[in-house]
Simulated assay, not measured.
Amino acid sequence: MPVMLPRQSRLILLAAAVLAALAGCGTLTSSARITTALTPYRIEIVQGNFVSKEQVDALQKGMSRDQVRQVLGTPLVTSVFHGERWDYVFTLKRQGVEPQQRRLTVYFQGDTMDRAEGDTMPSEAEFVTALDNRRKGGKVPRLEATEAELQSFDGKRTPAAAVVDQPVTAAPANYPPLETPR
């Protein structure tokens, strides 16, 4: 026969269960911090045409479509319904960085460029600096050797005459068969 607990005992057990569940939630927040610290690697996604400030500055009203294509490259979006405009869109998604998106629209009248509208584009140097996040605060290595370092290196090299005087072994005249004879 089942044992019936008094009403107060049931309330105490229910309160203990609720408190245990709430205590478990406190450990959940600390484990959530651990899972956010250990995130999987996400690849960088680069889509579209990067258009620099220098390229936009090279555009001039009256340029032909071929000349615009030589300066900016092939447009990412061309539409049958909007044949008088080319859209250049550039998107960059990187882990830990806000996604970047830049747009440039070139409008034509007939075969000649009328105008270009879009976002402010970074220069090539600014864009490369924004991409290179490997050396935050790091020291840039010296890329040139001094004359003294070059002279000390010259003394350590083996002279070319010593390499030429070494005997050369001849290649074998016969090679073993690739398959065993049947």
Rank of each mutant, 00 (worst) to 15 (best):
V140H: 01
V97G: 00
Q47K: 10
Q47E: 11
A58Q: 14
A37R: 07
T169L: 06
S52T: 14
E126I: 06
A145M: 14
L13C: 09
A160L: 10
L143E: 09
R115D: 08
F81E: 11
K156N: 05
S64F: 02
V71W: 10
V106C: 11
A125C: 05
G138L: 08
Q55S: 04
L5F: 08
G73L: 08
A21S: 13
V56K: 13
T158Q: 12
T36M: 02
E54F: 03
R142I: 11
G137C: 02
P40I: 01
F50N: 09
V140F: 08
R115S: 14
P75V: 09
Q67P: 01
A21E: 04
F153N: 10
M121V: 04
S123T: 15
R142D: 12
V106Y: 02
V46S: 07
K136P: 07
C25F: 06
E124C: 02
L59I: 07
D154C: 06
P159L: 09
P122C: 07
S64D: 09
R102C: 01
L38P: 00
T158F: 00
R115L: 06
K156M: 10
A171T: 14
E44W: 00
E117W: 04
G73S: 09
E179G: 04
E147Y: 15
A125T: 12
D165C: 06
E98C: 01
R103N: 15
